[in-house]
């Protein structure tokens, strides 16, 4: 028999979030992003546009990146959800978080959960992406503060950290960037 949930009724949702079992009764119209933020209390996942463009609400569903604002909570039934809060190992930041810190990746950081989750997915599939590949893969996430360069450098630093290398220190003073080089647009 099909399950029908009338207006005003709730449906059961059972999934795992960041490795822990999570079960709740939800109004089926509520988005997964709202369920994560309000019911699971994990406010690290941010809502920037609620129509699937800005990428701030990106999470992992069974390891793959997804817009949590473009899923109903009930669609997560039986799935494995990872949010920004699931990255760090206790006090120790995830290497991608550490890399973003090293490279001054973000400013207001409202977009950062989406970028971090997209980067986790990108590096899981392609552990040593080119700069052009990084730009393309992260083009589903909008940042209004940085002009992206520090985030791209953060991903490159993360590649180094994940490979067990010490990252190159970012410039301390004076001239930065590589004057005279053309970027791959």
């Amino acid at each position: 028999m099909s399950n029908t949930t009338q207006v005003g009724e709730t449906a059961s949702l059972a999934c795992t979030i960041n490795g822990a079992a999570f079960a709740v009764e939800v109004d089926p119209r509520r988005t997964l992003s709202d369920v994560i933020r309000e019911d699971a209390g994990l406010t690290g996942t941010h809502l920037g546009c609620e129509h699937g463009v800005c990428g701030a609400c990106t999470i992992l569903v069974d390891g793959e990146p997804a817009r949590s604002c473009l899923m109903l909570g009930v669609q997560a039934n039986g799935h494995d959800i990872t949010t920004i809060e699931g990255l760090a190992n206790g006090d120790e930041l995830h290497p991608i978080q550490q890399a973003m810190h090293e490279s001054h990746g973000f400013q207001c950081a409202f977009c950062s959960p989406g970028f971090l989750m997209s980067t986790v997915a990108l590096l899981a599939e392609n552990p040593s992406p080119t700069r052009a590949e990084i730009r393309e893969e992260l083009s589903g996430n909008i940042c209004r503060c940085t002009g992206y360069e520090s985030i791209i450098k953060g991903v490159e630093t993360a590649v180094e950290l994940l490979a067990g290398n010490e990252p190159e220190q970012t410039g301390q003073t004076g001239q930065t960037g590589q004057t005279g080089q053309e970027s791959a647009q």
Binding site: S2, T4, T5, Q6, V7, G8, R29, L72, V74
Partner: peptide, 21 residues
């Protein structure tokens, strides 16, 4: 910008889906 109310049906088979439609 939140979804409006709707009746939610989950189909478990093709025949259920077709019946619902």
């Amino acid at each position: 910008m939140k979804n409006p109310p709707f009746v939610y049906h989950q189909a478990h088979s093709l025949s259920e889906a077709i019946e619902l439609l």
